[in-house]
Amino acid sequence: MENKQEDELRKLSVELRLLEQTAEAIQSRVNMVNTVITDLTYAAMTLDGLEKEKENSELLVPIGGSSYVRTKLANPDKVIVGMGAGVSVEKTFSEAKEIVKKRLEDLEKTRMSLQHQFTQVADKMGEDREKFEGLLAKLREEKASKNV
């Protein structure tokens, strides 16, 4: 009987470790998705702002370290949008805004799905922990009564 309970405890402990790893992996993906969402939100805001500017408008372009270079807007109708795999394509403002909007929508869906997965894993972890603690208490009780 004790052996069975010990086996069950061992199984639960392995399962809990796996669930913890899964939860960590999901959380790290959520963080990655959040970073990209923030980046794309900035891109959308920049596109909105630039759309109102005319040719030769003076701009300050960030070069990192809170530093900027002074530039002039050469072509207010076109922007360059990354397509992945190191390829970027010239697009009109409206096309670029549409692409950014679509990517944001897709990422929101991914974030929702990841959060749903995380909740499922967290619930299962809660269940397993409860079972684990119950079994452990029972086992300790049995061992204590044997020792009396």
Partner: peptide
């Protein structure tokens, strides 16, 4: 995405 573009589209490589 590239296939959808015209042959003379402005494309950049990182």
């Amino acid at each position: 995405e590239l296939q959808k573009l015209a042959d003379d589209a402005v494309i950049y490589k990182a």
